[in-house]
Design a protein around this nucleic acid. Structure first.
Lengths: 109, 109
DNA sequence: AAACTTTGTTACGAAAAGTAAGTAAGTGAT
DNA sequence: ATCACTTACTTACTTTTCGTAACAAAGTTT
């Protein structure tokens, strides 16, 4: 495997550029929330969401809190490392709103 | 398919979160360059690079210029839309350098 | 015409994503 | 005690994408 220009950025992109990761973080930036909430807010399946959250937890980006209520409530939130991604998400949001057109998307009949 | 929170951000993430896209853009931010240069700067295969550049060209992010020299020289550069991604890349670079450790990477023996 | 360069493309096995159905733990109703 | 109901996943299976390596087009020099 060839070594790229900057290993840290490479590892950063590997995290960020897994499908759904950015949208999950964007969702969590609005506050801690539970599995089913994220699932219904994004076009992601339970399986993938479960995988992503587990990965993000292992990377120290997301925190998982279990409240043994009835039925069990599990809240996901961003750690400091996760919160620190706000700038990235914000920049991408700005770029998207400026440069993306929705001509060939669901919104159009 | 469920509709997410913000369609533009979703489309933006779909672009950005394809593997190698960010690193290719990061590479092109240092100036126009040719295929073989990008290929040797990143741990990406010719096939994938070719695919990504074609996609990015179709999205209007990358410009492809053919110079019929000998042998042919083809230079890839960022369009305005592509240049506008500098902020995203920069933020990710900053985040990576602050939060990513390289403990289990190539740099370690 | 054979060899060389750059810029790709094709073929094929491996990995990841997508979809749908099923599981586990706990509660409340019958 | 059992059945239905909720949340939070997991498993099985199909489709798409990735990764590696070999090969092809276009033009040039030998």
């Amino acid at each position: 495997m060839k070594s790229g220009c900057c290993p840290k950025l490479e590892k950063g992109t590997q995290l960020i550029s897994k499908r759904w990761t950015i949208l999950i973080i964007h969702q969590l930036l609005s506050g801690p929330q539970r599995f089913c909430n994220i699932e219904s807010a994004l076009p992601i399946s339970g399986k993938l969401l479960s995988e992503r959250l587990k990965e993000l937890e292992q990377e120290g980006i997301v925190h998982r809190a279990v409240y043994p209520e009835t039925p069990v409530r599990i809240e996901y939130s961003l750690t400091d490392k996760g919160q620190a991604l706000e700038g990235v998400v914000k920049e991408l949001e700005d770029w998207s709103s400026e440069w993306i057109s929705l001509d060939n998307c669901e919104g159009k009949s």
